[in-house]
Amino acid sequence: MAWFRKSKKPREVVKERGRSSVPEGLWVRCGGCREIIYAKELKHNQQICPKCGYHFRIGARERIALLIDEQSPRELFNDIEPDDPLEFRDSKTYRARLEESQKRTGERDAVVVIEGHVEEKPVVMAVLVYSFMGGSMGSVVGEKITLAAERALARRVPLLIVSASGGARMQEGVLSLMQMAKISSALARLRESGVPYLSILTDPTTGGVTASFAMLGDLNIAEPGALIGFAGPRVIEQTIRESLPEGFQRSEFLLEHGFLDLVVARGELKETVSRCLGHLS
């Protein structure tokens, strides 16, 4: 059994950890086919199961490395930190949760904004950090994405947003909700001025994030098998008091129902984004 447990710390520290993106040891069990996969092989394969094509979750900075030409793209608006407007506390204080997430992820909040190039085409890109409080959207996420949209508009450069989020951040109350309005206002200006915006939806994208910017791309592109919806599956099951059909709220389901333009495997994402940008800008 020692094969499945780490005895030493791995040399490569994987910072972002989602439910199923955790190559803890040498071997990982696939969330799709349940097969055992060699972790290194998984890493070389962009965290996609070589046996069944299941897409493991990846971190925001891995995502940037995957899509952006530059090894060190310019990071934007990184001097913004969260605050605690409600002085929120449940079993823990919001401040304690923030600190814990900041320490664990090395990020200040749940979004990273950069500018760089996708196959030599300039872009402004925002990527949500799912490992930071579930990628939830509070004032900082709202502000940084709005700033990203405003910068894209000012430079007339396409905007990319990669979503991975449980929705609005409860701990900032109604202010989180208002980030949906704020970002949508900035996207409205982008739309009027003819600067393209591509929304890339990854597992999972739900709640207020889906119900605002994630669904508002000029093109909506998702990774295979991503959970995408407004209400979470558990809430729906409680409401309708029956279990949900297989594949409900997955990318392929949304494609079939007309809410996505494309479902694209991770390996082809960069090239696809580049081709779309080639047509739209």
Partner: peptide, 12 residues
């Protein structure tokens, strides 16, 4: 709507 939200600016 642009003004809604509470955050801190800390140089880094």
């Amino acid at each position: 709507f642009r003004a809604l939200g509470v955050l801190q600016a800390k140089p880094r």
